[in-house]
């Protein structure tokens, strides 16, 4: 046996089976329940949005990397995740070319200008959504009633027509009951309306250990507590709009959120405060997207100033 052929490398000699592409693939799996809910509720138009969003993101990543002579990294699935995430927070009837523009912006401006995977300070999908909302406000807020409805939705619901539950509350003071919010039979973004579908996907990520409860937990709890303090129905505010989807799938984006436990708690609380303030006092009925983007901007600071106490470290009291 050739003895000089042993591989010599630094310890540890054992690596966990979970690699970054595996995690990204798991995020896509976790997005399947909201995706299927979206198709069930809004029909194949929703599927078209998802396909265009995902493909445009993957193609944009490949083209930019090719053009700048860097290795093409679409195999790590992170571009596909960003594209699908964007599609799921768009209205079902949005023109498909706008979807494509959103994905191009998400990957091009949200991710690649900063150097690609691991370097984006903001959540790329939310950058895409924010740009679309600013550029095509009408298309971005034209909602549709789900094609599928549930038997418990009897009389009195026709007045909701095509306003989202948050808009209905803000503009007409109508509060959608919990049932439709839970199952998702309300107007809204493709992947956001069904609370149960979002929770199933989130449970998968939690069980696989890819996300922790910290950011979504503090986020949702803060929204519940604050809305109660403002005399609102906390359950409604948790179930309505994009909160659950945003808390579990957007505010848990690795790259743009803090890594320290304390930083994550502050991040979640900050998102919650901003979301409630925008919902109650802002110009938009919903504030999840902007809240998370604003908090993303604080991530570097939070990481710097919330360093955990080392084992055995004695902190001088201030």
């Amino acid at each position: 046996m050739a003895e000089n052929q042993f591989i010599v490398s630094s310890s540890p000699h054992l690596r966990s089976e979970v690699s970054t592409p595996v995690i990204m693939r798991d995020v896509i799996i976790a997005l399947l329940p909201p995706s299927f809910a979206g198709i069930y509720l809004f029909g194949f138009r929703a599927l078209a949005v998802m396909i265009v969003g995902t493909l445009a993101a993957v193609i944009t990543e490949a083209v930019i990397e090719r053009a700048t002579h860097r290795p093409v990294t679409i195999g790590d699935y992170s571009a596909a995740v960003a594209g699908l995430l964007l599609a799921l927070v768009l209205p079902p009837d949005i023109p498909l070319w706008i979807v494509a523009v959103g994905s191009i912006v998400a990957i091009g401006v949200g991710k690649q200008v900063f150097g690609g995977l691991g370097h984006n300070p903001f959540n790329p999908a939310l950058i895409g959504r924010a740009v679309l909302l600013a550029s095509w406000p009408v298309a971005m807020t034209t909602w549709r009633w789900p094609v599928a409805s549930a038997p418990w939705m009897g009389k009195g619901f026709d007045i909701l027509t095509s306003a989202t539950p948050l808009a209905a509350l803000k503009l007409s003071g109508i509060k959608t009951p919990y049932g439709p919010l839970f199952w998702g039979t309300v107007a809204g973004s493709i992947g956001e309306t069904s609370a149960i579908a979002v929770l199933i996907g989130a449970a998968y990520l939690l069980i696989r250990g890819h996300i922790t409860w910290r950011i979504p937990g503090y986020y949702i709890l803060t929204v519940a507590v604050l809305s109660l303090l403002f005399g609102q129905d906390p359950v409604f505010h948790v179930l309505a709009g994009g909160l659950l989807f945003g808390a579990f799938f957007m505010a848990t984006d690795y790259v743009s959120t803090p890594v320290t436990p304390k930083g994550q708690a502050i991040f979640g609380i900050g998102c919650g405060v901003l979301t409630v303030l925008i919902r109650l006092y802002g110009g938009y009925p919903e504030g999840v997207c902007y809240s998370i983007l604003i908090m993303d901007a604080t991530t570097a600071l939070l990481d710097r100033f919330t360093r955990p106490r080392k084992l055995g470290e004695v902190r001088r009291s201030a």
């Binding site: 995690i23 995977l117 691991g118 890819h210 690795y254 790259v255 803090p258 890594v259 990481d303 080392k310």
Partner: peptide, 19 residues
């Protein structure tokens, strides 16, 4: 190695509570 994706797993797992 791929770029660090800031997943925080190394932070959760460090027994000395380092970053």
């Amino acid at each position: 190695p791929l770029p660090c994706v800031r997943c925080g797993k190394c932070v959760e797992n460090c027994p000395m509570h380092l970053l």
